[in-house]
Design a protein around this nucleic acid. Structure first.
Lengths: 129, 129
DNA sequence: TATAAAAACAGTAATAATTACTATTATTAA
DNA sequence: TTAATAATAGTAATTATTACTGTTTTTATA
């Protein structure tokens, strides 16, 4: 694996990730620009990809809209509101999948999985009521 | 819900979907063009979106590459190979999630979910051995 | 069967998200 | 202190998808 050198831009990206909830690359870009006005969106994407590859963060892909990024790499799932697009964490104790144990059923070697729930969040339900 | 009128292009798209495994819009386009040389990619996308909205097919989104489409709308999961990108069906009896029963844990009303496993498929494992 | 409204079409242009390229600057190990 | 390499900003290019427009097809009803 390649060696990462320190960069203050990457540090700012990580800082913002740790204090925010599933931001998109663009949201991170807007925030980091407050501290580094010349930072480029490419730098944000490159660092997010580097950090995902290192396993420091997770990339979340949904059928609608841009990817989101999550600094919580412990096993957990997500709920996405189809109306406002917000992403929520789900712990779902009791829904421990233990998929790696089911290798026999797999068409190969499983290295990870993602569980995404879709629906309408409570605040969007409230708006329609 | 809006009313669909018959179209032979849409019929060809459905036919190909039912005899193939998780094709992308572009793969469908290439195939349907054999029968309708002037079909446009926009027509393929429009019909795939219409059919997804009607619940006749499912759209599959992965972190890499274009969306895939699945004419199997019964509950099942997917395994995606990180190397060749192929998509496999998983039945995984015993991993019945029953998520709709867990509404109390959700930040809203759940309408669906997707479970995607990532890894290396057996044929890609063979190639590296 | 004729007709008219609605839907679908092909072809093209536009958009959104992301990646690639390049010349310069910053980091780091020796 | 230096030299190798990683990282950067800025820009261009790419990929996947959607939107637009004028024409054609479908379908319900007269």
């Amino acid at each position: 694996m390649r060696k990462l050198k320190y960069s203050k831009q990457r540090e700012a990206i990580k800082d913002f990730l740790s204090e925010s909830s599933h931001p998109t690359a663009d949201e991170i870009y807007i925030k980091v620009r407050e501290q580094f006005p010349n930072v480029s969106l490419g730098t944000v994407y490159r660092n997010l990809n580097l950090l995902s590859e290192c396993g420091e963060i997770r990339k979340l892909t949904f059928p609608e809209g841009p990817d989101h990024f999550d600094n919580n790499t412990t096993p957990h799932y997500h709920f996405v509101c189809r109306h406002c697009g917000r992403v929520f964490d789900l712990s779902l104790r009791g829904v421990e999948l233990e998929l790696p144990d089911k290798e026999g059923l797999m068409p190969g070697h499983i290295e990870g999985y993602s569980l995404i729930c879709y629906g309408t969040c409570n605040s969007c339900i409230g708006m329609r009521a």
